[in-house]
């Protein structure tokens, strides 16, 4: 098996897995009952899916400059996804009524733990 054939197969696997994760992220986004669970769907599979897609692209392009740009997107994604999730989550907890029926415990609402 030549290197080029191998990288094509690896690229295909990465692209398929990444697209599947993006699809499940979208399914979760529609199906999940409240904002917080939807955000779980929007952060984790989405980040991993995007990383896989970028990996799939990296297997197909050869130019070092393009690989650098892909690396930057991956790093930014890893840095920014938690930050934006935190910002949205905090705003959501402060402004909307949290559905307590979906929560086992809410240690943030407990007045003596605050």
């Amino acid at each position: 098996m030549t290197w080029s054939a191998f990288s094509d197969v690896a690229s295909a696997v990465c692209l398929l897995a990444g697209s599947f994760l993006a699809l499940t992220a979208a399914i979760g986004l529609v199906r999940f009952p409240d904002l917080f669970t939807r955000m779980h769907a929007a952060t984790k599979p989405q980040v991993l899916g995007l990383l896989l897609i970028l990996g799939g692209v990296a297997f197909r392009v050869r130019d070092a400059g393009d690989l650098g740009m892909l690396a930057i997107v991956a790093i930014f994604q890893l840095l920014t996804a938690p930050v934006s999730a935190h910002m949205v989550g905090r705003a959501a907890y402060r402004t909307t009524t949290v559905r307590q029926d979906l929560l086992l415990t809410d240690e943030l609402a407990d007045p003596d733990t605050r």
């Binding site: 690229s11 897609i53 799939g56």
Partner: peptide, 10 residues
């Protein structure tokens, strides 16, 4: 972004 990536890979 994923779609653009798939296109670029293809």
């Amino acid at each position: 972004v994923a779609g653009l990536g798939v296109g670029a890979a293809y």
